[in-house]
Simulated scan of single mutants.
Amino acid sequence: MRIRHESNPEDVKNYTTESLRNHFLIESLFKSDELSMVYSHYDRLIVGGTIPLKKTIKLDAGDILRTEFFLERREIGIVNIGSTGKITVDGKAYSLNKRDCLYIGLGNKEIIFHSNDLSDPAIFYFVSANAHKEYPTKVLAIKDAVPTKLGSDIESNNRTIYKYIHGEGIQSCQLMMGMTLLEPNNMWNTMPAHVHDRRSEIYLYFDMDEESRVFHFMGKPEETRHLLIKNQQAIISPPWSIHSGVGTKNYTFIWAMAGENYTFKDMDFIPIEDLR
């Protein structure tokens, strides 16, 4: 597991592009028959991924967490961004098609990832947060998630938001998680941008072709920066940072948040004229 420490926003003003990428961009999460994870000191979020191919993969952080098992003091949200697979939680199997979500609560000891078809494997993406209360393990299929339509073609941000883990969906201790799909010929994921100083957020961009890129904007509203992100890469957004992007084509992204506050609408929008 790789470790990412917090950065002072005053220091970030002086970061080079390489420094920004080293601190905030997660370039390689999905490897065949390996478990890849990054531990962020922003709200103690852990982000990870795996592609079970020739073997099943067990969720295990080694001695990094200094706990007996991964979810001893944590909860986790998992989304399958590949073909059909299953996740076994303490002996009970949960099947996930592409874009289905599984929430696993505090105290579950053994989590194992499987692919149904080794020639077309599942690709599991997950985000984990600290938890102090147990909530039931639950699957929410994309077909059963309630869509929220936002934006318009004229604004180039016609998109659908699916909220998986939140106050009115799958219940959790503090983790919130969902997915945003942009329609063809739409490229902006949100504008005006916003911050939420009470929680941090992580984006995973996917369903992009090899040549496509997202220009992801970050930084304090008066000191914005950008990073170029390609398919299946994630980026950590500190509480003080905007998080918005525009792609060379449409794309899909998974968002996950945790922190002080469990209210999805707790965000402070920044007028475009105040961005620099």
Rank of each mutant, 00 (worst) to 15 (best):
L65K: 11
T56M: 01
R74I: 01
G49Y: 07
H41S: 14
I78G: 08
D43Q: 14
D60R: 10
K58T: 14
I57S: 03
H41I: 05
Y42C: 06
T56W: 00
I51N: 08
T67M: 05
L65A: 03
I76Y: 00
T67D: 10
M37W: 03
L35R: 13
I64Y: 13
R74L: 07
S36T: 13
G62Y: 09
K55D: 11
D60P: 04
E72M: 12
V38W: 12
D43V: 07
E34N: 07
T67G: 03
G48M: 01
A61L: 09
T50E: 00
G77E: 00
T50K: 01
K58G: 05
L65Q: 07
F70G: 04
Y42M: 07
G77Q: 03
D60H: 12
H41Y: 15
Y42F: 15
H41P: 06
Y39E: 08
I76N: 03
F70E: 04
D63Y: 08
E72P: 09
T67P: 01
D63Q: 11
Y39S: 11
G77L: 03
S36M: 13
E68N: 14
E68S: 14
I78T: 07
E75A: 04
R74M: 09
T67H: 11
K55A: 10
R44H: 12
L45G: 10
R74T: 02
I46H: 13
I76Q: 02
V47E: 03
D63P: 02
T50A: 11
I51A: 05
I51Y: 10
T50D: 00
K55E: 15
F69I: 01
V47I: 15
I57R: 06
V38C: 14
T67R: 13
I76T: 01
L53E: 10
F69W: 14
K54T: 10
T50I: 02
V38L: 09
I46K: 13
G49Q: 08
P52H: 09
A61S: 15
S32R: 15
I78D: 04
P52R: 10
I64H: 12
S32Q: 15
D43M: 09
L35G: 08
F70R: 11
S40A: 14
F70W: 13
S32N: 15
E34R: 10
H41E: 15
D33I: 09
K58Y: 06
E68A: 13
D60V: 02
Y39C: 03
I78N: 05
P52D: 05
L71Y: 02
V79H: 02
E68L: 11
I64N: 07
R66V: 00
L59I: 05
I57F: 01
R44G: 00
V79S: 04
G62W: 08
Y39D: 06
G62A: 06
L71D: 00
D43K: 13
E72N: 09
H41L: 14
L65P: 03
S40H: 11
D33Q: 12
V38D: 14
E75C: 01
Y42T: 06
G77S: 13
H41F: 14
F70I: 06
I51G: 07
A61Q: 08
E75Q: 07
F69A: 05
R66K: 15
K58C: 04
V79P: 00
